Computed example of a mutant assay.
Amino acid sequence: MPRSLSGTDRVIHQFDNVLRTLVPGAASASRPSPATDAVVDGEMSLDERHHAAGLMRINHTGEVCAQALYQGQGLTAKLPDVRGQMEEAAQEEIDHLAWCEDRLTELKAHPSRLNPVFFAASFGMGALAGAVGDRVSLGFVAATEEQVGKHLDEHIETLPGGDRRSRAVLRQMAIDEAHHAQQALEAGGARFPAPLKAGMTLMSRVMTKTVYRW
Rank of each mutant, 00 (worst) to 15 (best):
A142H: 00
K108D: 14
K108P: 00
D153E: 15
T105H: 14
A120E: 02
P116I: 07
N115D: 15
E106M: 12
M125H: 07
E154Q: 15
L138A: 09
S137D: 00
E146G: 15
E146S: 13
A131V: 08
A142R: 03
H110A: 14
A109G: 09
L128Q: 06
Q91R: 14
D95V: 10
L128A: 14
R113I: 15
H155Q: 15
F118I: 10
C100E: 05
H151A: 05
G124D: 00
A143D: 06
I156S: 11
V148H: 05
T158R: 13
T158V: 13
R113M: 13
E157Q: 15
H110Y: 13
R113P: 05
L97T: 03
K150R: 14
A127S: 13
P116Y: 04
G149Y: 01
F140Q: 00
I156Q: 13
F140C: 00
V141H: 00
H96D: 08
A143R: 03
T105L: 12
G124A: 04
M125C: 12
R103M: 12
D102G: 15
A121P: 04
G139C: 06
H96G: 08
A89Q: 14
R113G: 13
A109T: 08
A109I: 07
P116G: 09
L104K: 09
L152A: 11
D134Y: 07
A129D: 03
G126A: 03
R135N: 09
D102T: 14
C100A: 15
A89R: 11
F123D: 03
